[in-house]
Simulated scan of single mutants.
Amino acid sequence: MAANAFTGLLNSSADRHSLFDDAQGIVAGSMLAVLGVSLLSGAGLLAGGTAGLAFLAHYATGFSFGLCFFAVNLPFYYLAFRRMGPAFTIKTFAAIALTSILSEFVPGFIGIGHVNPIAGALFGGLVIGAGMLALFRHRASLGGIGILALYIQDRLGWRAGLVQLGFDCLILALSFLVASPSIIACSVLGAVVFNLTLAINHRKDRYIAV
Rank of each mutant, 00 (worst) to 15 (best):
A3T: 09
N4M: 02
F6A: 13
L9S: 00
L10M: 09
N11T: 11
S12E: 01
D15V: 13
H17N: 08
F20I: 05
D21N: 04
D22K: 00
A23Q: 01
G25L: 00
V34H: 07
V34M: 11
V37D: 02
V37I: 11
S38N: 06
G42S: 12
A43F: 10
L45W: 06
L45S: 07
L46W: 07
A47H: 07
G48C: 10
A51Y: 06
F55T: 00
L56R: 09
A60M: 10
F65H: 08
G66Q: 09
F70L: 15
F70S: 04
L74T: 10
L74C: 07
Y77F: 15
A80K: 14
P86D: 01
A87L: 13
K91N: 06
K91Y: 08
T92M: 14
F93S: 11
I96A: 00
A97G: 04
L98S: 03
T99F: 08
S100G: 05
S103W: 08
F105V: 15
F105S: 09
G108F: 13
G111E: 12
I112W: 13
N116R: 09
P117T: 03
A119P: 05
G120F: 04
A121P: 07
L122Q: 08
G124L: 12
G129L: 02
G129Q: 04
M132A: 13
A134P: 06
G143P: 08
I147N: 04
L150C: 05
Y151D: 05
Q153K: 11
R155Y: 01
W158D: 11
R159L: 10
A160D: 13
L165C: 11
F167P: 01
F167S: 02
F167N: 03
L170S: 01
L174N: 05
L174W: 12
F176I: 04
F176K: 01
F176S: 05
L177S: 12
V178H: 08
V178Q: 05
A179L: 12
S182M: 09
S182L: 09
I184K: 02
S187N: 10
S187K: 09
L189Y: 10
V193I: 11
N195L: 13
L196G: 02
A199P: 12
R203T: 06
K204Q: 15
R206G: 13
R206M: 08
I208G: 08
I208H: 12
